[in-house]
Design a binder for these strands. Sequence first.
RNA 1: CGGGGCGUAGCGCAGUCUGGUUAGCGCACCUGCUUUGGGAGCAGGGGGUCGAAGGUUCGAAUCCUUUCGCCCCGACCA
Length: 490
Amino acid sequence: MLYLKKQEERPMARNITSRSQDYSQWYLDIIKVAELADYAPVRGCMVIRPTGYALWESIQHHFDEAFKETGHVNAYFPLLIPQSFIEKEAEHVEGFAPECAVVTHAGGELLEEPLVVRPTSETVIGHMYSKWVQSWRDLPILINQWANVMRWEKRPRLFLRTSEFLWQEGHTAHSTDKEAMEETLRMLEVYRRIMTDILALPVISGEKTEGERFPGAVNTYTCETMMSDGKALQAGTTHFLGQNFARAFDIKFQNREGDLEYAWTTSWGVSTRLIGAIIMTHSDDDGLIIPPRAAPVKTVILPISSDAEKLENELLPRAVEISSSLNTALGGRFTTVDRQFHLRPGDRFFHHLQRGVPLRLELGEKDLTKGTVRAVRRDTGEKMDIPIETLSEKIPLLLEEIQSTLFNRALDFRKAKTVSASTYEELKQGLSGDGGFVETWFAGGSAGEQKIKEETGATARCIPLEDSSTGKCIITGEEGAPKVIFAKAY
RNA sequence: CGGGGCGUAGCGCAGUCUGGUUAGCGCACCUGCUUUGGGAGCAGGGGGUCGAAGGUUCGAAUCCUUUCGCCCCGACCA
C-alpha cells in the first residue's frame, strides 16, 4: 500500500491481477508474466524457467561465496536414503515421515528396504560422518551441499512450498558444544547479512520457540521476513543439533585425553523459497522487481528508432558498445541489449519492466544527438537523461541507490506493520487486522503457542536475538518472559 | 485430508440449464501494408479428438455414471 501511489499514475498492467484485489493471484501472475516458473505435470512440482533459474544462480553465487569465506567446502550426498536411517532419530522420524516420498520398487523388483527420497540429509550425512570421524583432529567437518529435496506437501505454492525444491544444506560436526553453537549463530549471521545486503530483505534473526523447532534439533534459529501482505516468511534456518544425530549415527571421536565423545553437529539451509521472498517483498502491480545486487540482469539497453536502417547500423552498435563498457564497470555480464525490433517500444519497455530488471536504458536518435541515454528506474519509475560518457560511473551508483531504496521501503513497511502487545487481548487485537507482526512477552510453551494459533491463526515466529529484554508473559503472567514475535505465516 | 471453484485453441472465456448445421469470442501467434520515445491500426490466415473412460440417444461440449487433474481457502511444513 505504501508504494502504490506512483503506480496508480501509470496505466496498470493488463496481465497482472492487482495486489489489493487478490494477493495470491497477484503472486502467481508475477511468476507467470516474469516467466520464473511453470507447473510441472506432477502435482506440487514446478519447472524453474531460465529467468527464474538465473535468479537462483545469482542467489546461489552470493551464498556460496560466503560459505567458502567461512571455511566450508561443497560435496554431494545421494538422493536416496535407506528408510531405516530416517527412523534412527525419534523426533526426526516423527517430523518427516508424513511428508516423505518412498521408493519401493527398482529394476522391476520390490526392494528389500524402501528408500526415502531425501527430505533433508542429516541422516545420510550423519552416517558418513561416523565413518570419517575418529579423532578430535578430524573435526570440525564443515560441508555444504547444493541439492534438491522432496517433501510431499499437502498444499503446494510455487517457490514457497513445492514438493521438490532446490536448496543448500550445510552440515557440520564439532568437538565441543560451544563451537557447534558458534557455528550455528555464525551461519545465521551469514544468512542475515546476505538477505539484507544482497536480497534487500529486512530480516529479523532470532531463535525459534519450542513449537517451531526443527525435528531433532536442540535449538533452531531463523531469519524471519515480512511479505507485502503482512505475513511472515521464514527465509532461512540454522540448527544446533546438539549430540542428537551424533548419538543416532554414532559419530564419535577420541578427545585429547583419549576419551570417546559424541560430536556436536549443526545444519542450516536456504532454499528457492528466497525467490518467493523477493517477489513478495519488492514487486508491485506492474510486475517483478529484483534488487540490483541480486539481479542476473541489472540493466537493459533498448535501441529505439522507427528507422530500421539507423536502428541496425547506428543505434544497435552504439548500444552494444555501451553494454560492454557497462559490463566492465559492473564487473560481470549484467547488461543486455534488447534486440526485439519486431516489437514496438512500449512492448519492449513492459517486457523488461515486468521481468524486474532494475534499470532500463533507452537509446533513441534524440538521445544519440544529445549524447545521452534515457534511464528509467524500475523501483520508482523515475526517468533521467544521463550523458553516455558518464555511464560507467553513474550506473553503478544508480543501481546502489535502487538497492537501498528497495531495502528501506521494505523496512519501513515492516516497521509500520509491527505493533507491541503487553496483554493477550492486545495480541489478539494486533493480529486481527490485515497482517503484520506483533511483539509480545511470551513464555507459554507449546501449549500456549497452540492456544494462540487456534484463536488467532498466528504462530510464534521467533525470539529476536537483538532484543534480550524480558517482561510479563501474556499467557502465564510470569515475569522474565522473552520478547516473541507473533504473526500469520506462509 | 475437509470446504469451495474450475477443466472447451498457447492464455482468458462464452456455449452446457432447454442435446440438433462446419464449436464460437478476446488476447497471443503467422503473412502483408501503415505505424513506432509507455502495451498501435487495417486486411488476410493457422491452430480444437470440448480433461479421460463408459453409458443414454438417430444425434452429446451439452444428459447419466465413474474417474483424473488443477486452482483457491483451512489443518501440516523450508
